[in-house]
Structures are given as structure tokens and as C-alpha cells.
């Protein structure tokens, strides 16, 4: 009965803890490991990264958009088109925060060993701003304007139009004025540098980057 009492107390502690979102049983970790390129130890190391990010502003064990922004840009505020899209894609349940499982699943696409198709698909969804299933001219224009403003570069309307027209001439094979997933895939496969940001070398050595996982590990791999 002592075991039952201890187990009950531990459960109660987890359920009432602000960090209950961080509680993942060994079975949860194995399930995540079986459906991603990560080992159980790597997922535990990612939990250390997740903990760090989830307490940047509000210490509630969840990653909010401001925390994502602070982690990536070192500043918590300001409008940013790309950050909004990255956040939306990570927040798969669309409930306004990124939970640990969403974090691991989204980051798994960035693993050096993740399938190229997953990277191509993620980038397509990232650039399909209005989520219509197509990347349209207006969306490409909006993203180019955002990157130019981020870099402080001025470009004439004619130059901007020329870049957009060249882009569609390169990719829009059926000439319907929008890029579908097949057209995007064909172009991305031929131009792998476009997907450079879709691979994070750090993820291959995540247990070295966050060695503190060892203090909470469930498995010795």
C-alpha cells in the first residue's frame, strides 16, 4: 500500500504542477521515438531545450509565441510574418501554444535524417500563407517584401515584379498563376539549397548540446 500511496501522491503532484505538460512517461517517450528520427535519450535532451524555452517569459511549461520570438530573435515583441507561420506550423492543435509533443514532431522534420519529402512539405505549408493548398503570387510578393524589409533593402516595384515573374516562370509549370505542391516539389528537388534552413545539424548531437538530460533519463542508451 505504500507504493500505491507514493504513486498516488506523485500523480497528484504531477496533475497540480504547472509543469504537468512536461510530464511524459517512458511509454510516451518510446512512442515519440518510434514515430520520429529521435532516440529516447535525444527526446529527453529535447525536453531540456523545451524546458529552457518554455520558461523564457511565462514559467508555465508551454512555449508561447513571444517565447519562440525571444528564442529566435532575442526580442519578445514585433510583427513578423515568418515567425507567425513557424509558430502556426509548430502549434498543430491551434490552441495558442506549442506543447512538448508538437515541439518534438515539428523539430523532427528538421533532423538531418528526416525524409526530404517531409522537409519539402513543411516548407510548402510554411510558404502557403493563406493555407489554400497553393502558393500564390500575392503570397510570394508578401514574403519577398518581408525579407527585404528585414534586411533593410529597397527594391523598385519593377525589380520586385521581375523577381516574382522569374519565380513563377521557374516553378509554375502549368502556368495557372499559382504553385501547387507537385510543382514546388519538382523545383525544390532540383534546388536543394532552398531547403537549407529545413535541416538543423544541432539535432544530430542534441544529447551533447543538452547533456543535463542525463539527470532525468529513463533509459541508458
Amino acid at each position: 500500500w505504500i507504493e500505491v500511496l507514493i504513486f498516488g501522491l506523485a500523480r497528484c503532484f504531477v496533475q497540480n504542477s504547472p509543469y504537468k505538460h512536461l510530464y511524459y512517461s517512458y511509454d510516451d517517450l518510446v512512442r515519440l521515438s518510434n514515430t520520429t528520427p529521435f532516440t529516447v535519450n535525444e527526446i529527453e535532451a529535447l525536453r531540456e531545450l523545451y524546458k529552457k524555452l518554455s520558461r523564457l517569459i511565462i514559467d508555465d511549461g508551454l512555449i508561447h509565441k513571444e517565447e519562440l520570438q525571444l528564442a529566435l530573435f532575442r526580442m519578445p515583441a514585433g510583427e513578423n510574418l515568418f515567425l507567425d507561420r513557424v509558430f502556426d506550423l509548430f502549434d498543430e492543435k491551434k490552441n495558442g501554444f506549442i506543447d512538448f509533443e508538437e515541439f518534438v514532431r515539428a523539430l523532427s522534420v528538421f533532423h538531418p535524417h528526416a525524409p526530404l519529402d517531409d522537409k519539402i512539405d513543411f516548407a510548402f505549408r510554411l510558404y502557403d500563407l493563406r493555407q489554400t493548398g497553393y502558393i500564390e503570387k500575392e503570397e510570394v510578393k508578401q514574403m519577398v517584401v518581408a525579407i527585404l524589409s528585414e534586411s533593410g533593402i529597397q527594391l523598385s516595384d519593377e525589380s520586385l515584379e521581375a523577381i516574382i515573374n522569374k519565380t513563377f516562370a521557374d516553378i509554375d509549370a502549368d502556368k495557372d498563376g499559382k504553385i501547387n505542391k507537385e510543382e514546388w516539389k519538382a523545383f525544390a528537388v532540383g534546388h536543394p539549397t532552398l531547403l537549407k534552413n529545413m535541416t538543423l545539424a544541432y539535432l544530430k548531437d542534441i544529447t551533447t548540446v543538452f547533456p543535463s538530460f542525463i539527470f532525468n533519463t529513463e533509459v541508458d542508451e
Binding site: F73, R74, F82, E150, A162, I163
Partner: peptide, 29 residues
Amino acid sequence: KSPDSPTLINAFQLIGMSSCLDLSGFFEK
């Protein structure tokens, strides 16, 4: 197209340069 005309960049090559799409910031101290 004249041989002197500059080669235009594809918009996605530009967009891919955005620092906002570089998630390595997660791992930097």
C-alpha cells in the same frame, strides 16, 4: 535577353535567407 542582362534571383532563394526561418537560434546560448 542580352548577354549583359543581370541574372534574376528566384524569390524563394531570397526568402530562404530570412533569419526568421533559421531555427538554430534555439540552440544558441
